[in-house]
Amino acid sequence: MKKLNGLFCILALVICFSVILVGCGSQTEEKNASSGTDSYLTITDDADRQVVLTKKPERIVPLSASFLEPLHAVDGKIVARVSAKTGIPKEDENLPQVGNVYNINIEKVIEAQPDLVIAYKGMNDKFVSTFEENGIPVVVLEMRTYDQVKHTVDVLGQIAGNTDKAKTLIQDMDNKIAEIKAKLPNEHKRIAILHSTAQNVTVQLEGSIAGSTAEILEFENIAKGLTPLESNPTSAPYSLETLVSANPDVIFVTSMGKLETIKKSMMENVENNPAWQTLPAVKEKKVYFLPQELFLLSPGIHYPEAVEAMAKLVYPDKFN
C-alpha cells in the first residue's frame, strides 16, 4: 500500500511539472508572437506605413530605376526592373521588365514572384494595395532630396542586411559634397529655379531635386516659403512679376521634354520680353539650363555629381 501511495505521489508530481512546463511554453510563444521575434525586419516607410518583413528579401522588384544602383551598392537581390531610357545599370539590362515608373504592369510584377516590391512615393502609390492583396510586401520610399536619398540607402541597407555598406556609401557621398563646397567662395547667392515644359513654367521649391541641390550649396532660393501646387508639392506657381521683384543673381532652368526645343523657346521669350531684360541674371548671362540626367529624375547616389554640376555653372573657374 505504501508503494502504491508512493507511485501516486510521483505521478502527481510528474503531472504538475508537465503542467508548469506547458504553461511556460505557452507564455514564451505568446511573448515571441507579441514581440515579433520571428520577423526579419520592421520598417516605417516614407508613406508612414509599418511594413513587417518575415524574412530577408531575396527577390526584389523596384518600381523606379532610381532604386537600382543603391540596391546593388548594398547587395540587394533584384529580379525584375522598370523600363527606362537612362539609369539602368549594365547588370540589369537583361532583367524582365515590368512597365515604366508611371505605368507599372501588375501582372508582370507578380510573374517575377517577388518577396518585396519597392515603390516610389508619389508615382507608384496606387499599386501598393494590389500587391499587398497578393501577399507581396511593399516598402514606399522617396528620393528627391539628398536627405531622402541617404535615408533610402540606409533603409535598403537594412533590407539587404548590409548596413555597413550603406553607411560607407552615405559617408562617401557626404565627403564628395564637402570637397565640392570647400572650393566655393564664401558669398551670398540668390537663385531662382524654373521648371519648363512644353505646356507651362513653375518655380521649384526646396523639396525638388534642384531645390535640394541649391540648399546643399547654401544658395538662397527665392521661392522658399511659397505655397506649393496641390498637384505637385515640390513646385509653386510661376510669376514673372514675382521673379523681377525677387531679383535673383542666378536663374537655373530644369526641363521636361526635348531640351533644345525648350531652351530655344524660353530664350526667345527672355530676349524679347522687356521685363526679363531688367534682371541682372539675364543681363550678365547667368541663366543656366541644368542637365536632365541629374535634375529631371532623381540622381540617387550620384547626388554629388548634381551638386558639382550646379556649382560649376556658377563658379566655373573653381573647377578647372
Rank of each mutant, 00 (worst) to 15 (best):
F289A: 03
V52W: 03
L205P: 01
T130I: 10
A178C: 03
V117T: 09
K312W: 02
C9F: 13
F67V: 03
E29V: 15
S39E: 14
A65R: 13
E179V: 10
V153Q: 02
I104D: 11
K264F: 04
E111R: 12
K90I: 10
N175P: 00
S129W: 01
L63G: 03
I216W: 01
K121R: 14
S83R: 10
T242L: 11
K126R: 14
I301T: 13
L13C: 14
Q113D: 15
N186G: 11
N272H: 12
V79G: 06
E220F: 07
M143I: 12
L205I: 01
E91R: 11
I159Q: 05
D48L: 10
A178M: 05
C9K: 13
Q50D: 14
I216R: 13
V307N: 08
E230G: 09
E91N: 11
L71N: 04
I118S: 07
V101S: 14
Q113W: 00
K286G: 01
I118E: 08
I159F: 02
T254N: 06
E142I: 11
Y120I: 06
G23Y: 07
L259S: 13
F131H: 05
S35I: 12
L21R: 12
K167P: 00
Y315I: 02
N100H: 13
G122Q: 07
S64N: 08
Y315F: 08
L217N: 05
G211L: 03
Q158F: 04
K3A: 14
I118T: 05
L4G: 02
Q97D: 11
F319T: 07
P70Y: 01
P237Q: 09
N162I: 06
Y120K: 13
F127T: 15
E218Q: 15
V82C: 05
A112E: 10
N100F: 06
T227Q: 14
D92V: 07
D92S: 15
V101Q: 14
T278R: 12
E93G: 01
F8K: 14
I60N: 06
H302R: 13
